[in-house]
């Protein structure tokens, strides 16, 4: 699958990354190389092999439902670029 500039622009938009023309060029090329590499899987006979979601042989990692102290509001908001009282403040998202 060839990676077009449009694809990279679309993905960059989804990730909210503003790419310069030169970066777009470079990333398109790199992404294409990655996809070509991944395409090599097609050469293998993978009949009967189910998709792996995780590679480590661990499962059922759970915690008990017991409260643990977190951060106080003051601490939580310490690095917020904008705040109002105990709230994080962000540019208005609805009209």
């Amino acid at each position: 699958m060839p990676i077009t500039k449009d694809t990279v622009e679309y993905v960059a938009h989804l990730a909210r990354i503003d790419l310069q023309a030169k970066e777009l060029e470079k990333l398109s090329r790199q992404l294409e190389e990655i996809v070509i590499f991944i395409d090599r899987f097609k050469e293998l006979d993978l009949k009967g092999v189910s998709a792996a979601s995780h590679i480590l042989p661990i499962h059922n990692v759970l915690r008990e439902d017991a409260p643990r102290p977190g951060l106080c509001a003051e601490k939580a908001l310490q690095c917020a670029p904008q705040k109002e009282g105990n709230f994080f403040a962000v540019p208005k998202v609805i009209e």
Partner: peptide, 20 residues
């Protein structure tokens, strides 16, 4: 009693950003 992936309490009506 606690959230899905951390030990923060789930009580309703607590002051903003106090259960994080």
């Amino acid at each position: 009693r606690t959230k899905a992936f951390c030990g923060c309490p789930t009580e309703f009506g607590a002051p903003a950003n106090s259960q994080v």
